[in-house]
Design a protein around this nucleic acid. Structure first.
Lengths: 223, 223
DNA sequence: CGGAAATTGTAACATATGTTACAGACCACC
DNA sequence: GGTGGTCTGTAACATATGTTACAATTTCCG
C-alpha cells in the first residue's frame, strides 16, 4: 500500500514516502472508501482514530435544531479530520463529516498513531508543531475578539506589527482583508480609521500609519 | 531534587513522585529562583524551554504602546508557561512573565521534554491531552463569537445542551455566568431571552427552557 | 421563619456597528 | 492615454448592544 499524498501532509513532513509507508504498515491501519454523500463521522461521536483524507473531498457540517445542515468547512487531501482535538479527554467530533465526492480515508487507531510518534521522533514533532500552531492561531484570533471596539482591535493590530516601537508601521493587507480578520464590515473599519485620524491618534498615508498619540492608542487597547 | 508539586500537574498525571523525579533527573534541568518583580520571560522572546512554576506565583502581562502594562493572567504552581504554544514553529512568548512573589521555576529544555515524552508514554499522553483540551476550549469559545447576535449565541448554546433533541433543556449556570461566557452583559442577555420568549421561540420556567419554534431558533443560528 | 445576598426582570438612554449606496482614487492592462 | 476593476472614503439610516439604575424574585443560611 502506498500513500504518496501523505508526503504533503504536515503530519508527515520530512519523511520519505518509503519511511511513511513502513511506519503506517507497522500498525493496523485501514483505508475506507466513501461514496458521494456517505457519512464518515457523526457529530458527537467519540473519536477513536486519526482519519486522513487520501482522495476526493469531504465536508464538515452541523445540523441545527430543525434538522437543516450548515456546511462549516471542506476538508481536502491530505488534511486530517478533527486532528486538533484527537487526544482530548472524551474527544468527540464537532461536526458531521460527509463525502463531497467519492473519497478514500486512511484510518489509524489513536493508540497506533501514538505508537508511531514514539517510534519516529519526526512524527511526534510534526504533530506537536501542528497542534501548537493551531492553538496559537486560535488564541490570537480570540484575543482580537476580546477587544470589543473596532478602534481597539485596530490599535492592537497596529501595536502587533513589526516596527510598532518606531511609531511607524506599514499595513500588510487591504482594508477588506483586515475587516474580515477582525470580523467586522469594511465600511465600519474605514470609519473607525477615519475617526482615529481625526482624533489625532494616528496619521494615515495609504498603507503607512504613524502613531501620533501613544497614550490615546493605549487607552483604546486597555478598554 | 524533589518536586512534590509536579504530582498535581496535568502534565505528570498518573506518575508517582519518584517516577517524576527520575524522569526529570535524566535530562538537564534547572530550577531558577525569581525575586518579586523579576522577569522570567519577555514577550516576543523565543521559547526554548518548558517552564513550570514550582512555588510562589507569576503573572503574564503585556505592555501596550505607551509602555503601560496590562495584567493578563496569574500563573500559579504547578502551571506551566505558554505550554500550549511550546512546540509551534518559531514559538514566542505572547506575554511578559513577572514574579508576583518570590518564585521558583523548573526549566526543562524543549528537546529534553520531547525526550521525556518518548521515554514515558504517560508524559506524552498527558501533554497531548492537555493541548487537545486547550484547542477544544479555544475552538468552542471562538465558535460562540461567530454568532454575532446574543439570540444566536443563546440558541446555539441551547442546542448544545444535553437533551436538546427532546426540546426541553435545563440551563446549568446563572445568567451572570452565561453572559460572561458569551462575552456580553447580563441585562442584554436577559433582554434577549425575554424577547425570544415573547416571539414564541421558547418558553422559560426558571432554568428550564422548552423549544416552541424550532424553525425560528434555527434561523437565529444560521445568521 | 427571617433576613441578607445573590439572581433575575425591566426600563431609558447612549453609542457602536451593520447596511446600503455611491463616488472618487488607485492600479493593471491593453 | 484610456478603461475596467479593485480599493477606499463617506453618508444616512436601522438596529443591537452597552450602561446604569432600580425593583422583584429567588436562594441561602442562621
Amino acid at each position: 500500500m502506498r500513500f504518496p499524498v501523505l508526503h504533503n501532509s504536515p503530519l508527515f513532513r520530512g519523511l520519505t514516502e518509503s519511511e511513511i509507508e513502513s511506519l503506517v504498515a507497522a500498525v493496523s491501519f485501514r483505508v475506507r472508501f466513501y461514496h458521494t454523500g456517505a457519512v464518515a463521522a457523526l457529530a458527537g461521536e467519540q473519536i477513536s482514530s486519526l482519519m486522513i483524507v487520501l482522495s476526493g473531498s469531504v465536508r464538515g457540517e452541523m445540523s441545527d435544531l430543525s434538522g437543516r445542515t450548515i456546511k462549516i468547512e471542506d476538508i481536502n487531501p491530505p488534511q486530517a479530520l478533527a486532528a486538533a482535538v484527537l487526544f482530548g479527554d472524551g474527544a468527540r467530533y464537532p461536526v458531521t463529516v460527509t463525502a463531497n465526492s467519492d473519497s478514500e480515508i486512511l484510518i489509524i487507531n489513536k493508540e497506533d498513531y501514538l505508537a508511531m510518534m514514539t517510534r519516529d521522533r519526526r512524527v511526534l514533532s510534526n504533530y506537536l508543531s501542528f497542534i501548537c500552531g493551531k492553538a496559537q492561531f486560535l488564541s490570537d484570533r480570540l484575543r482580537f475578539h476580546s477587544f470589543h471596539t473596532i478602534k481597539g482591535k485596530f490599535a492592537h493590530y497596529l501595536a502587533s506589527l513589526p516596527g510598532a516601537a518606531t511609531g511607524r508601521v506599514v499595513i500588510d493587507r487591504s482594508q477588506q482583508e483586515l475587516s474580515e480578520y477582525f470580523g467586522v464590515t469594511r465600511p465600519s473599519l474605514a470609519r473607525a480609521i477615519g475617526e482615529m485620524e481625526q482624533e489625532g491618534l494616528i496619521s494615515v498615508d495609504r498603507r503607512e500609519v504613524r502613531f501620533l498619540n501613544l497614550k490615546g492608542l493605549s487607552a483604546l487597547i486597555g478598554t
